[in-house]
Nucleic acid binder design. Structure first.
Lengths: 106, 106
DNA sequence: CTTCTATTTCGACATGTGTCAAGATAGGGG
DNA sequence: CCCCTATCTTGACACATGTCGAAATAGAAG
């Protein structure tokens, strides 16, 4: 039984490490955050510019403000995005290191 | 408002495309499949060798056979892995194109 | 201070998800 | 044909999740 990574065909970063339980949970949290169409589109919108105001995100969906706020919170808690308040408005930006961590596994 | 991809700093593939609704749903399905610690470890195990027998996967977890079978089904339906029956045993392997599709977005 | 807007939190509800035990299915070997 | 093992399916249950409206909070500006 030969490791794929030794075959010259490492199919992905996941193939390399045995992936301990606690690390798997942390990573799964991030993948799960991306595992919703609304949140995926949110990340795409946020990533497409340096930062995006929530007031620009809400009208991009046929969903209530609280629902968008909830999804943004999930993304924040997963460590994929962060936000900054400036006056009345809140601006979101992606955390590229977090996306890079996932990318390294695929 | 300048696109990040034009800044010389494309943070990820997601930043490039507007990501339509139906495509987002398909992609989210795959991310969601990875969004569980057990399934993430399953993929890691399956990816680490050319193929893995279910009978080798089950004892790697403190979970019942049906539960592992359920998770494998989720991964199959997401298009991340596929399986082949040979006699009594069923062997799983990853579908690298599917992982690559996700990788391209991050 | 009061009021207005932007954003989040709370409470409620329907639906989805992870898990197991029990039963069904598939194939190999007496 | 019958049994044995491997795997999957079914049914049930507790728990998590996505959604909304209503209410709370944060600032800005009268």
């Amino acid at each position: 039984m030969l490791l794929k990574v030794l075959n010259g065909q490492p199919c992905c970063g996941l193939a390399a490490e045995p992936l301990a339980d606690d690390r798997a949970s942390l990573l799964a949290l991030k993948f799960k955050a991306l595992g919703d169409p609304v949140r995926l589109r949110l990340v795409a919108l946020i990533a497409s510019t340096a930062e995006v105001c929530v007031c620009d995100l809400v009208p991009a969906f046929a969903l209530s403000g609280p629902t968008i706020s909830h999804h943004l919170k999930v993304l924040r808690q997963a460590g994929l995005v962060d936000c900054e308040r400036r006056g009345t408005w809140v601006y979101y930006h992606v955390l590229p290191e977090a996306l890079g961590e996932l990318k390294a596994l695929l």
